[in-house]
Amino acid sequence: MKYLLLICTDDSVTIDDPAELDAQAWVDEMDARGARLMGDRVRPAEDVTTVRVREGSLLLTDGPFADSKEHMAGFDVIDCADLDEAVEIASRHPMARFGMVEVWPFWTE
């Protein structure tokens, strides 16, 4: 089953050693397991544009939808047997210790 991992940072968390956020070892491990299909970092929240169309009018908002100290920093798409494996994979991501990782199952018919 495929899952989207939303890798979220928390600006209120103080990190003593920025090297602890380096996800390369996690990426290498998940690639070697064949679990990670793709992933990438995204630009900071100040570069986000939220798009809505209401009653035929285009509404643009600078920044993400939610005004929060937490915001998406990247994503990964993984393929694994079940939610338990997806949670295990997400829990190993460095950002799980300093921010959060949301595990979203893909829609299947």
Rank of each mutant, 00 (worst) to 15 (best):
residue 63 G to L: 02
residue 10 D to A: 02
residue 48 V to R: 02
residue 51 V to E: 01
residue 64 P to C: 08
residue 34 G to L: 15
residue 44 P to K: 01
residue 5 L to A: 01
residue 70 E to M: 12
residue 104 W to H: 10
residue 88 E to L: 03
residue 73 A to L: 04
residue 76 D to Y: 15
residue 87 V to H: 02
residue 5 L to R: 07
residue 37 L to V: 07
residue 78 I to V: 07
residue 27 V to E: 07
residue 41 R to H: 09
residue 21 L to W: 07
residue 14 T to E: 14
residue 92 R to Y: 00
residue 90 A to G: 04
residue 91 S to V: 02
residue 9 T to V: 13
residue 9 T to W: 15
residue 86 A to G: 11
residue 26 W to M: 04
residue 30 M to F: 07
residue 44 P to M: 09
residue 102 E to T: 06
residue 13 V to A: 08
residue 82 D to P: 04
residue 67 D to M: 15
residue 17 D to P: 10
residue 58 L to Y: 14
residue 54 R to Q: 09
residue 28 D to E: 10
residue 82 D to G: 07
residue 34 G to T: 11
residue 4 L to W: 03
residue 42 V to R: 10
residue 81 A to P: 09
residue 13 V to K: 06
residue 17 D to K: 08
residue 66 A to R: 00
residue 55 E to L: 00
residue 86 A to D: 07
residue 105 P to H: 02
residue 96 A to K: 05
residue 79 D to G: 00
residue 81 A to D: 09
residue 88 E to A: 08
residue 60 L to W: 14
residue 12 S to Y: 10
residue 61 T to R: 07
residue 104 W to F: 12
residue 71 H to Y: 08
residue 86 A to L: 11
residue 48 V to H: 13
residue 98 F to G: 04
residue 101 V to F: 03
residue 47 D to V: 13
residue 102 E to W: 09
residue 9 T to G: 14
residue 62 D to K: 00
residue 18 P to V: 06
residue 1 M to R: 07
residue 101 V to N: 01
residue 82 D to W: 11
residue 73 A to P: 03
residue 2 K to E: 08
residue 27 V to T: 15
residue 69 K to V: 06
residue 13 V to G: 05
residue 46 E to D: 13
residue 87 V to N: 01
residue 77 V to C: 12
residue 76 D to N: 03
residue 44 P to G: 04
residue 41 R to V: 06
residue 33 R to F: 11
residue 92 R to G: 00
residue 58 L to S: 03
residue 30 M to C: 14
residue 93 H to T: 02
residue 49 T to K: 11
residue 47 D to S: 07
residue 88 E to M: 10
residue 50 T to M: 09
residue 15 I to N: 00
residue 103 V to E: 09
residue 80 C to F: 02
residue 34 G to Q: 14
residue 92 R to S: 11
residue 6 L to V: 12
residue 65 F to H: 14
residue 14 T to P: 14
residue 28 D to G: 12
residue 49 T to L: 11
residue 88 E to K: 13
residue 10 D to P: 01
residue 29 E to A: 15
residue 42 V to P: 12
residue 89 I to V: 01
residue 6 L to K: 08
